[in-house]
Amino acid sequence: MHADLSLDNSVLIRHYSSRRTTVFLVLGVLVLILGILNLMIGSISYPYADVVRALFSPFADGEINTIIWKIRLPRVLAAIMGGAYLAASGLLLQVYFRNPIVGPFILGISSGAILMVSLVMLTALGLRLTYITPFLTTIAGIVGAYAVMVVVVSIAAKVKSGATLLIVGLMMGYICSSVTAILTALAEKEKIKGFVLWELGSFSGFKWVEIWIMMGVGGLLVLAIFLLSKPLNAFLLGEDYAASMGVNIRRFRLFILLAASSLAGLVTAMAGPVAFIGLAVPHMARLSFGTSDNRILVPGACLMGAIITSLCDLIARMWLSPVELPISAITAFFGAPIVIGLLLKRGVKL
């Protein structure tokens, strides 16, 4: 199939770039559609026209306005951003570790975030500082994520095997979980309820201030990642190669790890642990765009992450309504078969 194309490389390039444009368009439209569906569907469903009217009049009174602006829109935005950031974080980790099976959850980064958040939520640590709660949990999440990341990376530098790396991540996850479990056992009853709900993972109950934090911090990070996709591409071929191309490895490595753990920590702190998005979505993006080029994949994975997370959130809300399922239950349901399929179909090696 490629034999003729290779004679004229410009044909090849055009062929691929037109495919990519199409995929971008499709994904963009899907994000919009799912967003609007999420606004329309719920315990009370509204027709499309009413939703749009409510969207354009944020300060009007009425039941529909309250529901859209106070409940559903924050949730829709949180799901979109949460999915996008987890996917970007996963993509960075996969490029950095040159391992297709890593993601924020697998490497124990999310567990580190959970541990730190539980410290804030369950102990007296957060009591005196209640007035900055959204910032505090966010910061705690990022710190926890980064701390675990540092441990994993320093061990990864000593052992070069991908399988060992995964096991280290898994073990870090266990350690963090056990500490979290101890904290939960020791905590006061009233605090436990809120923590357990958070730990199940959900995009519900987002306040607008949290949305702005996510948008600001996460948006800047994703933009920075996109702008650095050229050195990220050099990284695809290994650290040594990137260094020989003139990439400042030390600085860049720090950036990748900080950005990946910040994004994962940010989402985890606010929405609780959301499994598999960071691992599976970069692959879905890679396959649908047919490339490993990070200039395409950074925005591509973000869009794909937004779509999958929105879809999962819709299912979590509606499937067994009025019971709302934890988001991880749905994402794992989607994600795990995708990972298995990848391993089988593309012969992905650890």
Partner: peptide, 19 residues
């Protein structure tokens, strides 16, 4: 070091040399 990321075309791969 023989890095071979998936879904990277030879043309793109060689293009990385233009870095």
């Amino acid at each position: 070091d023989k890095a071979a990321p998936p879904l990277l075309q030879v043309l793109e791969f060689v293009g990385l040399g233009r870095y």
